[in-house]
């Protein structure tokens, strides 16, 4: 599944690396929008398969940030 941006903004920090295992609820990316830092977490646990963005990128609402391959 893809973690998507909840609002337009800038990628402030990427907290994970490709290949890494993450737990459900873990923050993966922090976006910055309107002077606020908005952590984005993964709803599922699994392996980070792809990171679509780089720190400093401007992104639109709904844009894909990180793909997680869910692990049971």
């Amino acid at each position: 599944m893809d973690v998507q941006a909840q609002m337009a903004g800038t990628v402030f920090r990427i907290l994970v690396e490709a290949g890494q295992t993450v737990n459900a609820g873990e923050d993966v990316v922090i976006l910055e929008s309107m002077k606020m830092e908005i952590p984005h977490s993964t709803p599922v646990g699994g392996i980070v398969r792809e990171i679509y963005v780089q720190e400093g990128d401007f992104i639109d609402e709904g844009q894909k940030l990180v793909r997680i391959e869910a692990q049971p």
Binding site: Q6, M7, A8, G9, M34, I38
Partner: peptide, 13 residues
């Protein structure tokens, strides 16, 4: 403020 009144997330547009 341009923000969601429930989540308080920013709401540009």
């Amino acid at each position: 403020y341009a923000e969601d009144p429930v989540t308080f997330y920013p709401s540009p547009g």
